[in-house]
Amino acid sequence: MAPRLECPLVKKAICRGAVMVEARDIISRDRLARRRNSDVKDPSRDDGQRCGEGRHRTGLACSLYSMENRVIRTIFFDYDGVLTTDKSGSQTTFRYLSEASGIALSTISAAFSPYSGDLFTGKVSHAKIWHKVCEAMGKALDIDLLAAAFESTPRNHGMFSLAQTLRANYSVGIITDNNKDRMDHLRKHQALDALFSPIVVSAEVGSSKHGQDIFLHATSRADVAPVESIFIDNSEANLVVARALGMHTVFHDDEKNDIDALTRALESLGVRVGCH
Rank of each mutant, 00 (worst) to 15 (best):
M1R: 14
A2G: 02
C7I: 01
L9D: 05
K12L: 11
A13K: 07
I14A: 06
I14C: 00
C15V: 03
R16P: 00
R24G: 12
R24P: 00
I27Y: 12
S28K: 05
R31A: 03
L32V: 09
N37S: 14
V40W: 01
V40L: 14
V40D: 02
D42T: 09
P43D: 15
C51F: 12
E53A: 13
H56D: 09
T58R: 04
C62H: 02
C62T: 06
E68W: 03
V71A: 08
F76A: 11
F77V: 11
D78A: 05
Y79D: 00
Y79H: 08
G81A: 13
T84E: 09
T85N: 03
G89D: 08
G89E: 10
S90Y: 02
T93V: 15
T93A: 05
E99I: 01
A104M: 04
I108V: 10
A110E: 13
A110D: 11
A111D: 01
P114Y: 12
V124K: 15
S125G: 13
S125I: 06
A127N: 08
V133D: 04
C134Y: 09
E135A: 01
M137R: 02
K139T: 07
I143M: 08
I143T: 03
I143W: 01
A148M: 03
R155E: 06
G158I: 06
M159F: 06
M159H: 07
L162F: 05
T165K: 13
L166N: 01
R167P: 00
G173K: 02
N178E: 12
R182N: 05
M183C: 01
H185L: 06
L186M: 07
L186F: 14
H189W: 09
D193R: 11
A194T: 14
A194K: 12
L195M: 07
L195I: 14
F196C: 04
I199A: 02
I199V: 15
V200T: 15
V201W: 05
S202W: 02
S202N: 03
A203N: 03
Q212S: 15
F215R: 01
F215P: 00
L216Y: 05
H217D: 13
A218M: 09
S220Q: 14
R221K: 12
A222V: 03
V224M: 10
V224E: 04
P226G: 11
I232K: 01
N234P: 07
S235Y: 14
A237Q: 15
L239C: 08
V240Q: 11
V240N: 04
A242Q: 01
R243E: 08
H248Q: 13
V250F: 01
V250C: 07
D253F: 12
E255K: 14
K256D: 14
K256W: 11
K256E: 14
L262A: 11
L262K: 07
T263E: 05
R264G: 09
L266I: 10
L269C: 08
L269N: 04
V271G: 06
R272P: 03
V273N: 05
